[in-house]
Design a protein around this nucleic acid. Structure first.
Length: 606
RNA sequence: GCGCUCGUAGCUCAGCUGGAUAGAGCAUCGGACUUCGAAUCCGAGGGUCGGGAGUUCGAAUCUCUCCGAGCGCGCCA
């Protein structure tokens, strides 16, 4: 990192000190990596608790509580520690010196937007592939969830110190894009004035191809209509997929999602195509890297000619026992070996996907994340097997499955027309409820849980609606600033000057239990970022923000019954400034987390 | 039949990768607006963590086995 590594945060500091203490007691043989320092669920157990003694007791040949005594003794003189208790089966509970929470708050103000930025990524390259829908129609809400998840995960990883690529794999090589081309060709003939009647079974009936047909008619006149299919098809296909991708890019942009790389599947087979969507590099690839990939795997002994047992279920009518080109994925944990060539000699989707993932490895990524729809779960083992085979076990692939989205309106399922091609698009949903609501709602859930998306609830302005609740917390902070400015003009008129003033606050005046609790929460943010990034779980950020907002709203309301707890105290500027510093800390972290999620942090709610 | 993802309060969901007495919101009941924003807050009730067995100091979390839901199971992508 050129800007220097981020400052270590309180929990990382304490973990290191506990590890040092344990190491001093046990010697170098101890496995210190298993030690955890975490906030106890019960505040009565102090500020931090560590399991060090329980985890290491066996190796040490001591009872946990006896070991805890020794470790505690080594920590007794620590500059941050006020009090140490041994409790339960051998927890070491630490109560920290009073000033550490004020120090933590000051760190938030000092670091601003950088607060929480992590170093665990250490600049390592990581590749996040998401959406990757066929360019055969508009995105629907399920695609949107994958897109939002992948984008937020990428942002989270970047914040945690990784060098992140956001990638969209364009499935523009299969039979489905040929169907798209034929569908567009029909619209083209329609645009030329031909009566096309009903769209035949098997073609895409949606109206969205009409524009494509009209453009083709404008650019080519009737010349395409005179060609045989094998001549017009590539032309129409390219135009249609280009137009579809332009639409998809727009839809993604409306959610503030901008992949760095749009990677064309077809380019793996046919060589490099002009790629109008690449926003970054355009990797140069030789013609048919799928073939060379397969050849390389064959040399390594991972590919062979053989037969497969018949599938266990489904109809066996089409089943034909034949020798084919297979990837020995069973050697890497898969259930059966997987074919790479179809009976007509063309590549299976898996074959090109292997070549695609090899390209990621070739570009220096050892850490790969794929975000897929839940219906692709059966594909995970073979893809992991392929990555393992290609990298010699050096690269890691984590596949995040995104469950389906059930669209509701006020609790009732949204009626989807049976007619193919006519479904609720992502664009319609974003237009109706807005980007922030869509994004937060989709991230306020684990990726592998089914999501009920209620169009009525996500725009509701109440506690029931988490996005509103968190945004309101941020707005409430600014509302307090506005009020403070009105009542104490001397404080500061504009944000930058105010921030400087608040950095000087005497945060030692923040001694109320509610205030301390908020400061502890703020101190937890960097640790949360690390944990969420390691787990590849952006939803944790959303839940954290909700909890922080909740504590803030609570503290605010406490001031109603107890006026001395209000943020603004009329004739006590010193206390007021200290509390405004706390508000600044809250606002900073709320804004930081919301930014990671791609959700607006408004200064007032309207 | 096999594989994957799940099963936590009446409902919708968290649970910090094995920690202490399992937590929120909604719903229900009871409170708080002369107020820096009541768009909010405080309190109460509500649980065999699907069932059972195992691993160990300790299990909602890990293993096994049943039950139930969803998804998938050459030549679709």
């Amino acid at each position: 990192m050129t800007a220097g590594s981020p400052p270590s945060h309180l929990f990382a500091t304490m973990l290191a000190r506990v590890q040092t203490a344990a190491g001093a007691v046990l010697g170098s043989a101890a496995d210190l990596a298993r030690i955890v320092v975490e906030p106890p669920r019960d505040p009565a157990h102090g500020d931090m608790a560590t399991n060090a003694a329980m985890v290491l007791a066996k190796d040490a040949g001591l009872k946990p509580r006896d070991l805890a005594d020794k470790i505690a003794e080594a920590l007794r003189a620590d500059s941050l520690v006020e009090k140490i208790d041994i409790a339960g089966p051998g927890f070491i509970n630490l109560t920290l010196k009073a000033h550490v929470w004020g120090d933590a708050l000051r760190a938030v103000l000092e670091q601003g937007k950088q607060y929480g930025r992590g170093a665990i990524g250490a600049g390592a390259k990581i590749n996040v592939e998401y959406v990757s829908a066929n360019p055969t129609g508009p995105l629907h809400v399920g695609h949107g969830r994958g897109a939002v998840f992948g984008d937020a995960l990428a942002s989270l990883l970047a914040f945690a110190g990784y060098d992140v690529a956001r990638e969209y794999y364009i499935n523009d090589a299969g039979a489905q894009v040929d169907v798209l081309a034929r569908s567009a060709f029909l619209r083209y003939r329609e645009a030329l004035g031909e009566a096309i009647g009903e769209i035949p079974e098997g073609l895409y009936p949606g109206d969205y191809l009409k524009e494509c047909g009209e453009e083709l008619a404008k650019d080519y006149g009737d010349s395409l209509a005179k060609m045989p299919e094998d001549e017009w098809l590539p032309i129409v296909r390219l135009r249609a997929t280009d137009m579809m991708m332009a639409e998809i890019r727009n839809d993604l942009a409306s959610l503030r999602i901008v992949p760095n790389v749009f990677f064309s599947e077809r380019s793996l087979i046919e060589g490099e195509l002009p790629d109008p969507f690449a926003t970054e590099e355009a990797p140069v690839r030789p013609k048919d890297v799928v073939e060379t990939t397969i050849a390389q795997m064959r040399e390594l002994g991972h590919v062979y000619e053989g037969r497969l047992p018949p599938p266990k279920s489904g109809n066996l009518e089409d089943w034909e026992d034949r020798e084919q080109t297979l990837f020995r994925s069973t050697a890497f944990g898969d259930d059966v070996d997987r074919p790479l060539l179809k009976s007509d000699g063309s590549y299976t989707y898996f074959a090109t996907d292997i070549a695609y993932h090899k390209s990621k490895l070739d570009r220096g990524f050892l850490s790969l994340i794929d975000v897929w729809g839940a219906d692709h779960g059966g594909y995970i083992k073979r893809m992991k097997a392929a990555v393992s085979a290609l990298s010699g076990g050096k690269a890691d692939l984590d596949v995040k499955l995104v469950q389906l989205v059930r669209l509701l309106r006020a609790g009732e399922p949204v009626k989807m027309s049976k007619r193919a091609g006519d479904y609720v698009t992502l664009r319609e949903v974003v237009a109706e409820v807005g980007r922030s609501a869509v994004r937060f709602d989709m991230l306020y859930r684990k990726n592998d849980a089914v999501l009920d998306f209620d169009l009525a609830k996500v725009i509701e302005q109440s506690r029931e609606n988490p996005v509103f609740y968190v945004q309101y917390g941020h707005a409430r902070g600014h509302s307090i600033f506005r009020m403070a400015q009105a009542e104490m003009p001397a404080l500061a008129s504009e944000p930058a000057a105010r921030l400087e003033a608040l950095k000087m606050a005497n945060v030692g005046l923040l001694t109320d239990e509610g205030e301390l609790s908020i400061m502890r929460k703020l101190a937890l943010y960097p640790r949360l970022i690390e944990a969420a990034a390691v787990a590849h779980e952006p939803h944790r950020v959303a839940f954290y923000l909700y909890e922080l907002a909740s504590e803030f709203h609570g503290q605010w309301s406490r001031g109603k019954d107890s006026p001395h707890l209000r943020f603004i105290i009329q004739n006590d500027p010193e206390t007021t400034v200290a509390r405004l510093a706390l508000v600044q800390g809250i606002v900073t972290v709320l804004a930081s987390g919301l930014a990671l999620l791609g959700v607006d942090a408004p200064e007032e709610m309207r």
